[in-house]
């Protein structure tokens, strides 16, 4: 039995219809149905944060959200942050070379964006906490933290 459900999800400001089997994750729906591959597939158990998006403005792991549960909700992926061009956080990441293999970068961008939105002048501790659910296996945390601090500063100036 592979019943298909149709869900209406607002993705990056656009109402999308996705039809998927019930056990489909929001991660798979975004990547395969919406073609938004910036959201990365990795641990599948909510440990690594590579699949982080904003759901109703809060960072969540899309590997642990059913596409069905996102029906009627507002989702922003890395592609949709601050419109089409690079966001303040993305610019800071480029400026500080804070991306090595790059796999964690989209999740980091989403978590950092949520932090700066709710806390415009974050302390180092705030930054640490905000990305504590985002693993960088290149272990390039220092430059990522610097980038987020610079982005917050740029945004508040």
């Amino acid at each position: 039995m592979r019943a298909t459900l149709v869900h209406r999800i607002t993705v990056n400001g656009v109402l999308r219809e996705v039809s998927v089997p019930p056990s489909t994750t929001l991660l798979a729906a975004l990547r395969e149905q919406c073609g938004l591959t910036g959201t990365k597939f990795n641990c599948e158990q909510g440990e690594c944060g590579a699949c982080t998006v904003l759901m109703d403005e809060l960072p969540v792991n899309t590997c642990l959200v059913l596409a069905a549960s996102a029906d009627g909700h507002d989702v922003v992926t890395v592609e949709g942050i601050d419109g089409p061009g690079p966001s303040v956080v993305q610019q800071a990441i480029m400026a500080t070379d804070a991306s090595q293999c790059g796999y964690c970068t989209p999740g980091m961008v989403v978590s950092a964006t949520a932090l700066i939105a709710r806390c415009p002048k974050p302390t180092r501790e705030d930054v640490d906490e905000a990305i504590s659910g985002n693993y960088c296996r290149c272990t390039g945390y220092e430059s990522i933290i610097t980038a987020i601090e610079q982005a917050a500063q740029a945004r508040s100036e």
Partner: peptide
């Protein structure tokens, strides 16, 4: 071309399907 993507993207939370309810 979705078959390969499905493998890569781990489409579902399990091999077994379930019926979804939103009461």
């Amino acid at each position: 071309g979705s078959t390969e993507q499905r493998v890569l993207a781990g489409p579902a939370v399990g091999a077994a399907e379930f019926t979804y309810h939103r009461p």
